[in-house]
Nucleic acid binder design. Sequence first.
RNA 1: GGCGCGAUAGCAAAGCGGUUAUGCACUGGAUUGCAAAUCCAUGUAGGUCGGUUCGACUCCGGCUCGCGCCUCCA
Length: 463
Amino acid sequence: MLRLFNTLTRRVEPFQPIDPASVRLYVCGMTVYDFCHLGHGRMLVNFDVLFRWLQTSGFQVTYVRNITDIDDKIIDRAAQQGESIQALTGRMIAAMQEDLERLEVLAPTHEPRATEHVPGMIALIETLMTKGLAYCGSNGDVYYSVRDFPGYGKLSGKTLEDLRAGERVARDEYKRDPLDFVLWKSAKPGEPQWPSPWGPGRPGWHIECSVMSECFLGSHFDIHGGGHDLQFPHHENEIAQSEGAHGHAFVNVWMHNGFLRVDGEKMSKSLGNFFTLRDIFQRFHPAVVRFFLLRGHYRSPLNYSDTHLEDARQGLNTLYTALRESEGGDVSGIGQKIWTTEAGQAFKAALDDDLNTPEAVAVLFGLAHDVHRGVAEAGAQLAYLASLLGLLTQNPVQWFQEGAGLVVAGGADERARIEGLIAQRQAARAARDFASADQIRQALLAEGVVLEDKAGTTQWRRA
RNA sequence: GGCGCGAUAGCAAAGCGGUUAUGCACUGGAUUGCAAAUCCAUGUAGGUCGGUUCGACUCCGGCUCGCGCCUCCA
């Protein structure tokens, strides 16, 4: 049985969906004003693994991952670059989708955009007004009144007093309480705006998730996820909005993934220490990045460096070597019987234990070992289990020839040239001219091509 | 200042109150015309000080160090 760490209770607990056959999952996605960086990639891959594992576990999963396509940063960035908001967000959404496809992150069931749900947001704010949980400030902004929502702080484990004691709580003359947050912002000239009972304006950030989750999943659903930094205030505020409006529980399980770090510090836009996925993909194959991310537990911090990515690449190559050895691993005929095998059971136990992907990956290495020792079906099991994590999806021979996880120049022409040299070397070997044969081996090795003589033929791969 | 998380071998990273995690790198042997891959065999751990226990890397407490949230942030 699947067990998940629930931020709300701060412990790992058995997962039981509201409806036994299906799971409703919502994850806070991207604010599209820039390219995705590796930290975003980590979050998206982690929840992709959850999505996949829930499905593998037999649940019918409705997965909603929103896109925030209106907010201050988007407005600022568009102005700064002299392009329209739609042009900027359109460009960034396309880039994100390309990045995610390369990372083999599956498309969610629904991917709503904030701008498509403004009427719903206005309706929810009106409900909050009616219930006395929201008020309109003299500046025309509408605020949520946190002191009127009992239980504010339950997700982040903070009390209103704790929060007020913080040095960094911003003062705002229009708010009744410094912790009150904006539900609706009145429009400034030239900014995008929608009509509302409080005048033209645009929604605050938190309200969109309360509305879009309810639209697709109802007002009470199973799992809500996001990065650790969203725990407070974003998710806390979502709870205040949704539970305040509906008067009943909003989400059963809250999940938050740990940060990706650079030199021990959180990778973030504000620190400027981020690496975009597309930059990394210029050097490493996306599969290496995915594998690197899954070698760590989703809740632990994970340090990024080229050395770590290179370690991951070597490890992934070990798995691909086994897969190549087993001739690709014929997955047909595996099916449900995988769960009666030792490896299958260990793999399931690992993922059922709060998505312990490092341990699941260790099972894959065990199978790779079995392949080389001639254990029947080990290759097929390896390919099958790895596919459940979105790993080892490439053809192994191609994988090795196209760069073995590195991005190398050269296409079909380059391959023909290498194979020509290999043919020359084979001729030299046949003539027992080992000096010439070794010369070709050395020349190819110098350009990163490794030759592997085996059973009379020569296989090659990139180092 | 408030709240919380972490400290595992050369590097990365898990589980576990007593039995090999795993990967990368390294060492010896086998194999190979030479290699690569692989196999076999080895080595390197658990911040620090106490406590609980027959026994602790694993539980409890102090200390030190690192990180996060409290402001936009995945």
